[in-house]
């Protein structure tokens, strides 16, 4: 029965985070301060072309995460498996596409038949991959230590996002596990009807297309009912509402942002990656 606690384990975006020990400080910071601190560095990284700068930022981000965040097996896998593998794969992936004419004066790195991969191309590829890796690593500082609902709350409290939009977002998080469950049922239902039997990507896409309307139609009808229930409970009665879950912006947030800016500036000044080669 659908009303009984769902049998499939689902991601609970509201799951209370276990209390962190005091020095896992990232969890105690305001979500916005973690975004604000890393954003300038992320934007400036777009403009660099060397290897050392992104590598330094990856090191910085990892150091902060390892000290300040609770490390679960999942995040450990992300940090030490997914990101490195991603960087290496993207590094080679990009180098293949580099215009050989630009780098044919460098030493060959790999030769297959008449095709040569020059080490210059590999360097350019890895510069790009490290840059993307650094941007992702910086995002993880906040991403791994912030829950969706807290981000919404601080957007309401500090950024003055209208609370009606914010609370719509909170309600939206509830839709996610529901979506997963509905999709599983719809897939089984279509399978039973022998819908588009057949393998291969084309048949898959055709099948997937068939799930969209039932899935969204069900979700939208559900959303309309939730809207009625929210209206009936005085949602939007006043321009503001009582807020019990304060996500304060404290002096420690300012300290964190200032320290991070200082560290970023130090890296950029020390390595100054924009000087003409």
């Amino acid at each position: 029965m659908t009303t009984i606690t769902s049998p499939v384990p689902v991601i609970d975006p509201y799951a209370p985070t276990a209390p962190a020990s005091a020095w896992r400080f990232l969890h105690a910071l305001n979500p916005l301060s973690k975004v604000a601190a890393v954003a300038p560095a992320m934007l400036l990284l777009v403009l660099v072309r060397d290897l050392a700068t992104p590598a330094s930022f990856i090191a910085l981000a990892y150091a902060i995460i390892l000290v300040g965040a609770r490390i679960t097996p999942r995040t450990a896998a992300l940090l030490f498996l997914a990101v490195p593998v991603g960087v290496v794969v993207i590094g080679f992936g990009f180098s293949v596409w580099v215009d050989a004419a630009l780098v044919d004066d460098t030493a060959p790195f790999l030769q297959i038949g008449s095709w040569t991969l020059f080490s210059g191309a590999v360097e350019i590829g890895f510069a790009t991959a490290l840059r993307l890796g650094a941007i992702a690593a910086l995002a993880l500082v906040g991403g791994l230590t912030t829950s969706g609902p807290d981000l919404v709350r601080s957007s309401i409290q500090q950024l003055r996002v209208p609370y009606r939009v914010g609370y719509t977002a909170l309600a939206a998080f509830r839709f996610v596990p529901r979506f997963g469950h509905e999709l599983a049922v719809i897939r089984a239902a279509h399978r039973v009807r022998g819908h588009h039997g057949g393998r291969g990507p084309i048949a898959r896409i055709a099948r997937g297309w068939g799930y969209i309307v039932p899935l969204l139609a069900g979700a939208i009808r559900h959303a309309e009912r939730v809207a009625l229930a929210m209206d009936a409970r005085a949602f939007g009665a006043h321009p503001t509402r009582t807020e019990r879950h304060l996500v304060p912006f404290r002096s420690r947030d300012i300290v964190f942002i200032a320290l991070f800016f200082a560290a970023s500036a130090t890296i950029f000044i020390a390595l100054f990656p924009w000087q003409p080669a």
């Binding site: 009606r164 939009v165 939208i220 809207a227 949602f235």
Partner: peptide, 25 residues
């Protein structure tokens, strides 16, 4: 609730449903 509100709760939540689906994409 002011009646002239541009986006009713209903429209907001329909946006949420669409947003969740496309957000997962």
């Amino acid at each position: 609730m002011p009646k002239n509100r541009v986006l009713s709760t209903r429209v907001l939540l329909i946006c949420a449903a669409v947003g969740v689906a496309t957000g997962l994409v």
